[in-house]
Computed example of a mutant assay.
Amino acid sequence: MAFADNGGVRLYWKLEGAAGKPVLLLLNSIGTDMSLWDRAAPHLLPQFRLLRMDTRGHGASDAPPDDYSLETLARDAQVVMDAAGVERACVCGLSLGGMIAMTLALQAPRRIEALILACTSPQMDKALWTQRVETVRTQGLAAIVDGAMARFFSEGFVSHHPEVTDTARAGLLAMNPCGYAACGAAIRDMDLIGRISAIQAPTLVIHGRQDISTPYAGHADQLLARIEGAQAAALDAAHLACVEAPTAFAGAIRGFVSGLAEQATGEAAETLFEAGLKVRRKVLGDAWVDRSLSSRTPFNADFQAMITRYAWQEIWGRPGLDHRTRRLIVIAITTALGRWEEFRLHVRAGLEQGGFTEDELKEVLMQSAIYAGVPAANTAFAEAAAVIRGLEAETPNSG
């Protein structure tokens, strides 16, 4: 068993999945341990490496008796990430886990790749949680277990999956009431509603249509309104949505994170395209590039984007050779291969843009005659002469 230590408090954690995949840190609801994710894990492992932990006061982690804060629980998560060798992760928290995840995103934003807030809220009824903490401390968990189960699962799920719900009930009754009450105090004292607008991580808010503990109104809607750019996913489930609808829950996370990766790829491609376009304009001239761009169609647009990114940014943008040398290399290669359309383009652009002189062009074609053959050079001289005559005809007062 793997434990991390935060100020003398042992925290149980487990890392599973293929090395090299992005890490998804999973943070539990109050009253559950890391087994909360057992039904969703098989659907997440194809895309992620899963880092699970038992929240302080739960499962195999220590349960010191004093009240906990969300800040302490978020620091616990950082300690576990450190112990697992994880610098950055996508973080998914359900209920209390979502509150911890939000606090972690505010406490250590650089460690968050993306945030998934499931069946959670930035504000809860303080009086309700004050009473619940007091009840657990004076009467034990048996006094609240029926209400917790009614909030955790929908009636239909309880009817069809007693093996799951009875296990969850037994787990809640077996846990340390001090740990439950101390985490309940963290919920009671939560102060996130005025702070979460500072969260910068890409965020997905998952809510259950049958969730009576943190319903959409007053909870998920507050997250969506206050976290810029947050996306929403609604599942047909009650509070423990990852248990009740594991496939849909995992699908929402996978789709969200994949979308972020595609967006990042698209943004990077756009940056490369713009950089390549600058080089392309410098070498070929604005007029030719504008004509080329205006002739794009749905059929050839991807090809045009590709050559702008790779040919013009990746190759022409390399620092090893200046543009004059690259132009002359292109002239020699297109002569050797008989690529006359490309040959004419680069002869015209080179002479028009001052990329090389006619004498330098002649020397390249003479060299090509030796290594590419006299017939190729003969055609090249004829093609180049036609381009030169065209440029002279376009020059004012040329005659």
Rank of each mutant, 00 (worst) to 15 (best):
H207W: 13
G208R: 12
T214A: 06
E228V: 09
G229W: 15
P202N: 05
H219C: 14
Q231R: 08
P215R: 02
I199R: 00
I196A: 00
D211C: 05
V205C: 09
P202F: 02
I199D: 01
I212F: 13
A220M: 08
T203D: 00
S197P: 06
S197N: 10
L223Y: 11
I196K: 00
A217D: 09
R226S: 08
H207P: 00
G218P: 05
H207T: 12
A232D: 07
Y216S: 01
A220P: 02
D221G: 07
I227C: 04
P215A: 12
A225M: 11
T203F: 01
Q231V: 12
V205M: 04
R209E: 02
Y216L: 07
Q231C: 12
L204P: 13
Q231T: 15
P202D: 05
A232M: 06
E228T: 14
Q210L: 11
L204D: 09
G218T: 04
S197V: 10
T214I: 10
R209A: 06
L224F: 13
G229L: 08
D211F: 10
A232I: 08
A201W: 01
G218Y: 08
A201Y: 01
G208P: 01
P202Q: 04
E228M: 09
R209D: 00
I206E: 00
S213A: 15
Q210C: 06
S213P: 00
Q210K: 11
A232Q: 14
R209Q: 10
A225Y: 15
S197I: 11
T203E: 01
I199V: 13
G229K: 06
I212Q: 07
A232W: 09
Q222K: 15
A201Q: 03
D221T: 12
R195Q: 14
G208D: 01
A230K: 06
A230T: 05
Q222L: 13
P202I: 04
Q200G: 13
Y216R: 04
R226P: 03
